[in-house]
């Protein structure tokens, strides 16, 4: 099964991609309720993610999930920087692993809750 990462796109992220040519690669999910990129991974890249992050796992769709929020954020930043969904995205992400792990360590005990009425 091919493995991939789903990168969710909210309005702010979509704005950063304007003019990149990536807009046409946006996947509409759940009847258009969600926008996302599916970033395909080589077997080596997928295995490396699983090895680097203890919580990471492959779900029933073949998507790698349960990675730190910082990882997802950096994946998006690399997409925006390279204006690509190709292998250079993961090259950029792996080059920033130390930074991701440092941020992930801080988020392993605290994540700010959304500011909504409950």
């Amino acid at each position: 099964m091919a493995k991939y990462i789903v990168v969710l796109l909210d309005e702010g992220r979509l704005k950063k991609l304007e003019g990149s040519g990536l807009e046409k690669k946006v996947e509409k999910l759940f009847g258009g309720a969600l926008n996302a990129f599916n970033v395909e991974l080589s077997d080596e890249d997928a295995q490396r993610i699983l090895d680097e992050f203890a919580t990471a796992r492959v779900d029933s769709r073949g998507a790698i999930t349960d990675v730190p929020v910082a990882f997802n954020r950096v994946v998006f930043e690399e997409i925006a920087k390279t204006k690509s969904l190709g292998s250079e995205v993961m090259q950029g992400v792996f080059a920033r692993l130390a930074e991701i792990k440092e941020m992930a360590a801080k988020e392993s005990e605290y994540l700010p809750p959304p500011d909504i009425e409950v």
Binding site: V6, L8, D10, L29, F30, G31, A33, L34, R57, D59, S60, R61, A63, T65, D66, V67, V69, N72, L111, P112, P114, I116
Partner: peptide, 23 residues
């Protein structure tokens, strides 16, 4: 097919995205 993956939804929650009611 857009599957309901618990872990995908957990990722969405962690990123602070308010999930659509279909999810």
């Amino acid at each position: 097919r857009q599957k309901f993956s618990g872990s995908f939804i957990r990722g969405m929650v962690s990123e602070g995205v308010f999930p659509p009611p279909v999810i």
